[in-house]
């Protein structure tokens, strides 16, 4: 059995960017990229690559194709899935992707998946840490008429079936579907592996294929947004913290309890 696995991965601003370096241009309604902090492959997308590699190890034979839609790709960053062990990569790179909302992104990704053809499993991250939409993958599954198994923390492949355990706040639920299907995964699937030296060498020899929207037969009207961003701002925080200081740290702890009691908080 050779599986065709597609992984959707997005380049995002590093979510570990310190809050002091996080700036919004309110007029342009954009987040200003922090100086000197390179973008990253979205964390849950790295988990998706890891999940695909585990599936491949399990079934023996599989091709992993990574797709990303965007404009300003930083190649050193985007090649990480290849150096982790993915087989090939397709970048849908087009200035028009700057203005895509989730509906448009899902449209482009599903067209690209159709163009690649014969996908058995599509694996996505649960959510992207820029707009935190957590629904682009569901758009893809709807557009491609695939079953959708979301928030997986493990994936098991059977004969033409997929079984996943979906994370729940108090445990998990096991779901089963026939292939082809779409799966979203989260951090509970396990840490993304570090690229090996060999992986990095192999990745450096691979050139991602690039497609434009026109290559996918899409025009502007096919990707018209369903949502309009009207305001983007950093919420004001005028909370004042009263720091309790005693003679030493233990005393501070004692005084903190007394203070909370005095304020009727405890």
């Amino acid at each position: 059995m050779s599986l065709n696995i597609i992984v959707c991965a997005k380049q995002v601003m590093d979510p570990e960017t310190p809050m002091s370096a996080f700036n919004v241009d309110e007029a342009a309604k954009r987040v200003v990229p922090a100086q000197g902090i390179p973008p990253v492959v979205n964390g849950f997308c790295e988990n998706a690559v890891e999940a695909a590699l585990k599936v491949k190890e399990g079934v023996g034979e599989a091709t992993i194709t990574v797709i990303s839609v965007g404009n300003d790709f930083v190649m050193d960053v985007m090649k990480k899935p290849l150096s982790m062990g993915a087989d090939q990569m397709i970048l849908v790179q087009d200035p028009a992707t700057e203005n895509l909302d989730a509906l448009g992104t899902a449209t482009v990704l599903s067209k690209a998946i159709e163009k690649i053809g014969q996908a058995d499993i599509v694996i996505c991250g649960q959510q992207a840490s820029d707009w935190d939409n957590a629904h682009v993958p569901m758009g893809i599954s709807e557009m491609l008429g695939m079953a959708c198994l979301s928030e997986a923390r493990s994936i098991d492949i059977g004969e033409g079936t997929v079984t996943v355990a979906s994370s729940r706040s108090d445990g998990y639920e096991v779901f089963e579907a026939a292939t082809p299907c779409l799966i979203t995964v989260n951090n509970e699937i396990g840490e993304p592996r570090y690229p090996t030296l060999r992986g990095i060498m192999q990745a450096s020899r691979k050139t991602p294929e690039t497609w434009t929207l026109a290559d996918l037969g899409l025009s502007d009207s096919d990707v018209a947004p369903a949502l309009t961003l009207t305001e983007l701002f950093v919420p004001v925080n005028d909370r004042q913290c009263e720091i309790i200081e005693g003679e030493d740290e233990a005393d501070s702890g004692r005084l903190l309890a007394l203070k909370l009691r005095e304020e009727k908080i405890i």
């Binding site: 004042q240 740290e249 233990a250 309890a257 909370l260």
Partner: peptide, 24 residues
Amino acid sequence: IFKEASFGVVGDWEKVLPAFTETA
């Protein structure tokens, strides 16, 4: 966290917490 909290102690939890727990 001190921008979100209304009360706090700056210190090593190993020293602060036992006294806090006992007093509470």
